[in-house]
Each structure stands twice: as structure tokens, then as C-alpha cells.
Design a binder for these strands. Structure first.
Length: 374
DNA sequence: AAGGCGGGGAA
DNA sequence: TTCCCAGCCTT
């Protein structure tokens, strides 16, 4: 690996900025000076690709145009605007941080220290907001930058150890110029996103080719070093689609902690073993009765829905049935749901749900006419 | 230091 | 399929 001292930071920054001026991406948050809007973009872009964020960003800002409007809204409304973006904790942190800043008064922080410590703000996000929004010379270190630096140095270790992080932050700081640090931050992310991509990097056009140790070794594909990950286990569950006599559907709000915290879903039963397949409607009814204290008609199966989470695959088997009880009877709640509600079809979309549960609810929609069928 | 956390696009 | 992404938080 090349010594850090061999890097000519000033020359390299100039080359990268030249690349950025010629062929940087045009993105809605480019040139943004409003720290609130920039903050929203940075949070959305955590672990989420630009292509996905592009559709959410303007909608979210139209709904919550200022930090005050965000702070003054309910978490449910924020989650609804975030619905489908994933990592919902980001939205909850964003909301809480907005409330904290508004309560504190004085607007959005103009210095790094004011951002660090807010929920959802880590060192790279804080640096990005002030580098881009105020042209302060802070280094950033995200996935794109890590990949670029790993190749630049022919970095021979996996990137996520704390030692590797230390080294990469150090190099990132060393390369960050005093001139145009905001453009530089966006330029190095553009480089990683458009040329120094994970597969098939376009070294021919790279402004840093002459400095790149991986390229010199003709081994760009060998960096960054990756450790093989264990496969994801598959879990199964039953989604109980329970209607009452008024065609209202039972929906439940998940616990405030853990996976999909605070989002809504049809009551779901985890199935511990695949041995239970095929599922007998009788046993589904029995378990609904045990778990939620709801006696129902014989559940009818719908096609299973597949979904992949960060750490596991999930297959949900939806069953439709009708509640036989009377209004006023309580719904049991051993699943730890925060609250449960009966909702008419027109109200389903007013509650935030994860994509998985949108898929389930779509099974209950009448088939939509295809564009050809006028 | 390690594990948890959604979803979608690319290959 | 598998990998990874404008990371951060909790344990």
C-alpha cells in the first residue's frame, strides 16, 4: 500500500474538481444553501441510492418545507411521507432532531458541533451538510469515498474494521482541499458513483488514474477487499387479513422499537418452522383466536408474498377471514402491538406501512385496469 | 467491536 | 441469485 505521504492533495483536488466541473451530475440538492433541505437530502441518501431518493426528495420537501413544519407535525405524518424509503428510523430521528432544534431556537447549526449529537447525524452527514451548504473544509467518508480511497491506496484490508476506518478518515481529511471543499465532497461522491463504480470501473476517464495504486497494479477489481457474508435465513409468517361485518380491516401498529418500528401491518403470526406447511385454514383460525382473541370464519389463503430485509428473507402467507364477534369486544394483543384499529378501505392509505405490507394490502385491491383497456 | 436495520437497482 | 448503496445507533 502506498504511504499516505506520497499523495499530492492539492494536485489531486484540482484534478477531481476539473472532472466535477466538466461532468458532475445535476442533482436537485446541488447548489442548495438551505441547510434544512440539504439535511433532508443527506438523511435520505444514507444507505439509499440517488435514483430512489430523486422521487421522494421533492415530495417530502413539499409536505415539510421547513424545519418548523417538520417539527410541528406528527411522527405518523413523517413516516407516511417516508413510506417505501426504508430505514424508517432515519425518519424518526429526523423528526426528533427537528423538534430538538426548533425547541432550542437559533435555527440550524452553522458549526459541526451543533450537528453532531443530533439523532441520525453522524460524522459524515454532519460534515457533508456544512461542507456542501457552507463550503466548510470538512472531510466526508461514505460508501463511495471508501471504495475510491481503497482503490487509490490499494488498501489491503476490509473497510469496516475500526482500524480501517481510522486510516480512511485520515486520508479523506488529508485529501480535502481548503478551496472548494463543498464541491470536492460532491465530486468524490460523483467519482465513486459514476466512474469508480463497484463493478466495471471506467478507469480510462478517471481524473485520478495516475495516482491510483490499484490501477497501477492492474488489480482494480480486487479492491476494496471484501469478506464473504453468510447467507440470509428464510423466515415465514401468516398475515391475518381480518374484516369485520362493516368491511373494515384490522390493522396494528408495530412496537416502537425494532424492525419497522411504529409502522402498521395486518396482525402477523410468526411461524417457527417450515414443518407446518402446508398451512391448514383450521390451524390458522385457531392461532388467530389464541393470539388475538378473535373468532373468525375459516381463513381463505391468498398467494404468498416474498420480501427481503437486510438480514433475512421473509415469506408471508396471507389469509382472509371475517370476525364473528360483536362491536365492543376487545382485540387481544399478545404480539406487543402499540395499538390496533379497524379501518375502512378508504383509510388504509392514511397509515404508514412498509413495502412488504403494501404488497399484502394490494392483494385486497380490485384489479386495476391496464392502460390498454380504455 | 459487532450487530441491527428496508428497499431497490445492477450485474 | 448476490452485492451494495451520500451511515448511524445500540449493545
Amino acid at each position: 500500500m502506498a504511504g499516505v505521504g506520497e499523495l499530492d492533495g492539492v494536485r489531486m483536488a484540482g484534478q477531481l474538481l476539473g472532472f466535477y466541473d466538466r461532468q458532475g451530475r445535476q442533482l436537485p440538492w446541488r447548489g442548495e444553501r438551505d441547510l434544512y433541505r440539504l439535511w433532508v437530502s443527506e438523511i435520505m441518501l444514507q444507505q439509499t441510492g440517488v435514483a430512489t431518493v430523486l422521487s421522494y426528495y421533492p415530495r417530502f420537501l413539499a409536505r415539510f418545507p421547513t424545519v418548523e413544519s417538520l417539527a410541528g407535525s406528527t411522527e405518523e405524518a413523517v413516516l407516511l411521507a417516508w413510506q417505501g424509503l426504508g430505514y424508517y428510523r432515519r425518519a424518526q430521528h429526523l423528526h426528533r432532531a427537528a423538534q430538538r432544534l426548533v425547541a432550542r431556537g437559533g435555527g440550524l447549526p452553522e458549526e459541526l458541533e451543533g450537528w453532531l449529537g443530533l439523532p441520525g447525524i453522524g460524522p459524515s452527514t454532519a460534515a457533508a451538510i456544512l461542507a456542501i451548504g457552507r463550503d466548510q473544509p470538512h472531510a466526508i467518508l461514505d460508501g463511495n469515498v471508501k471504495r475510491v480511497l481503497a482503490r487509490l491506496l490499494a488498501f489491503p484490508h476490509p473497510l469496516n474494521s475500526s482500524r480501517a476506518q481510522q486510516v480512511l478518515w485520515s486520508v479523506a481529511r488529508q485529501l480535502t482541499p481548503r478551496q472548494r471543499p463543498g464541491d470536492y465532497a460532491q465530486a468524490i461522491m460523483d467519482l465513486g458513483a459514476t466512474l469508480c463504480t463497484r463493478s466495471q470501473p471506467d478507469c480510462l476517464r478517471c481524473p485520478w488514474q495516475e495516482h491510483c495504486q490499484a490501477h497501477r497494479l492492474a488489480a482494480v477489481a480486487s479492491f476494496p477487499v471484501v469478506v464473504p457474508r453468510p447467507g440470509k435465513p428464510r423466515r415465514r409468517g401468516v398475515a391475518a387479513l381480518i374484516f369485520d361485518k362493516n368491511r373494515q380491516l384490522l390493522l396494528c401498529q408495530r412496537p416502537a422499537q425494532g424492525l419497522l418500528a411504529g409502522l402498521w401491518e395486518p396482525p402477523t403470526l410468526a411461524m417457527d418452522d417450515a414443518e407446518m406447511l402446508p398451512l391448514e385454514p383450521q390451524s390458522v383460525a385457531q392461532r388467530i383466536a389464541q393470539r388475538f382473541n378473535l373468532h373468525t370464519t375459516l381463513p381463505q389463503p391468498l398467494p404468498p408474498v416474498q420480501h427481503t430485509f437486510t438480514h433475512f428473507h421473509l415469506t408471508l402467507y396471507p389469509f382472509v377471514c371475517q370476525w364473528l364477534g360483536e362491536e365492543g369486544e376487545g382485540v387481544g394483543n399478545e404480539a406487543g402491538y402499540q395499538t390496533v384499529r379497524w379501518l375502512p378501505r378508504a383509510a388504509w392509505h392514511t397509515l404508514p406501512c412498509a413495502t412488504l405490507h403494501r404488497k399484502i394490502l394490494r392483494l385486497l385491491e380490485p384489479p386495476t385496469a391496464s392502460p390498454e383497456n380504455h
